[in-house]
């Protein structure tokens, strides 16, 4: 596998230049409102479903940007954001 990730600033680069930042769960909920369940769901829980997911990446060995991509976790190939597979 030669996992390639397309950085919005630097273009397609080797996956090893990046750090994974988790499934996209949206912005942090208001901490004041968080029950232990809600907190745990936001912080720890994942869907871990084989298939296309929206996820965060950081270009560690490059421009230092956090961005999202769609990736098929059964192939490790990126999926275009406008592809029909990206609709959850």
């Amino acid at each position: 596998m030669a996992f390639t990730i397309t950085c919005p600033i630097c273009g397609p680069r080797s996956g090893y230049e990046f750090r994974y930042g988790g499934e996209d769960k949206g912005p942090r909920p208001d901490p004041a409102q968080m029950t232990p369940e809600a907190w745990c769901d936001y912080v720890h829980m994942t869907d871990s479903r084989p298939g296309v997911q929206k996820e965060w990446w950081y270009h560690r060995a490059g421009c230092g940007t956090w961005f999202t991509i769609y990736r098929d976790t059964t192939t490790n190939l990126e999926v275009a954001p406008d592809s029909p597979e990206t609709v959850a």
Binding site: M1, R19, Y20, S48, P50, T75, N76
Partner: peptide
Amino acid sequence: PWPNFTTQTT
């Protein structure tokens, strides 16, 4: 360190 369901080697 990235989640995936392949058993591909690198």
